[in-house]
Amino acid sequence: MMNKTSLIAIALLVFMGFFPLFVDSAWLAVGTTFLVFSVVALSQDIILGRAGVFHMGHAMFFGLGAYTTAILNVNFGLPILATWAPAVLVPMLVAFVMVAPIIHLRGDYLLVATIGFNIIFIQVLENDIFGLTGGPNGLFGIDVVRVLGFDFSSQTHMYYMAFILLGITLFIMRNLDKSKFGRAMFYIHKDEIAAQSMGINVRYFKLYAFILGAGIAGAAGSMFSVQYSAVSPEAFNVTQSIMFFTIVLVGGSASLPGVLIGTFVMFVLPEMFREFETARYLVFGVAMILTMILRPRGIWPVRFGNIPDFLKKGVK
C-alpha cells in the first residue's frame, strides 16, 4: 500500500542521497546547509507547530550547539566527537532554565520573551564572556570529525553526516507524532483548557517540546560549526530566528513535508537568485505575503487523522 506522499518522500530521499554526485562544491555546500537548516526548522516546528508556543528565538539553541562544539574544540582541544553530547545537552539545559519561569505566558508575551533570550545570547557572544566566545569575530579553526584515524574532512562527508542527522530527526519526529507526547502537544495547541481537563499537564508538555527542540537544534548547530569550521554571532541572531519561524509557517506548521518545502523556499531559492542581489528581498517579502494570503496554513498544511488502519475500517 503505497500512497502519494510516501512515493514523493522516497523519490526525494533518493534524489537527496545522490545529490552530491552531480553538483559542484558551491551547490554541495548549499545542499549541506539546507539539510542542517531543515533539522533546525523541524526542531522549531516541535515548539511552534506542535505545542503551538509562539517561539521566535530558536537560533539561540542552534547557536548554543554550535558554540558548545566550537568552544570545547578550539579552546579546550576536545575532539569533535566528544563535543556532540554536550552540544545537545547544553541547549536542553538552557531551554529548561530559561523557559521554565515564563512558560505560562500568553502567546505574544512569550514571543517577545524568546526574542529577548536570543538578543541576550548574542550580546553574551559579542562581549566575549570569560574570553571564550571570541567576541564579534567568533571562533575559527574548528576541527573535522575524526573516528579511529579516519578523517571525515571532505564536503561530501559533511553532506552525508548532515543527511544522517536529518534522517535521525525525521525518525524522532515520526515517533513523536505517534506517541502520547506529540499528541498532547497538539491537544494543548488546539485547546489548552480542554487539554487540561483531559489530564494533560500543559506546563510539562510545553517544556518537553522546548527541551526536545533545543536538543535537536543543538545537534544541528554542532554540525553547522564543523561544516564552516568557524562560528560567529550573526549566524544565530534574531533575524535567523525569524527565518526559522517563517520557514515553519510558510511551509505548513506541524507538517514534515511542509517544513522541508519551507526550508527550500526560504533558504535555497534565495541562493538560486543571488544575481538579483538588491531586489531579492523585496520580491521575497511580497512572496511571503502572497503565500500567506493564498495558503494561510502553509504550502503543504498538516493533515490530521493519522490513526491505525484497523480504526479506519468503519469509515464510509
Partner: peptide, 22 residues
C-alpha cells in the same frame, strides 16, 4: 470544546492520555 481540526479518533485518544503508560 473539541480539538476541531483533529479527527474523531484522535479526539477520543486524548482521553487515554492519563491511562497511557508511555
Amino acid at each position: 470544546r473539541l480539538f476541531a481540526e483533529m479527527s474523531v479518533a484522535e479526539n477520543i485518544m486524548s482521553g487515554r492520555h492519563i491511562k497511557s503508560k508511555q
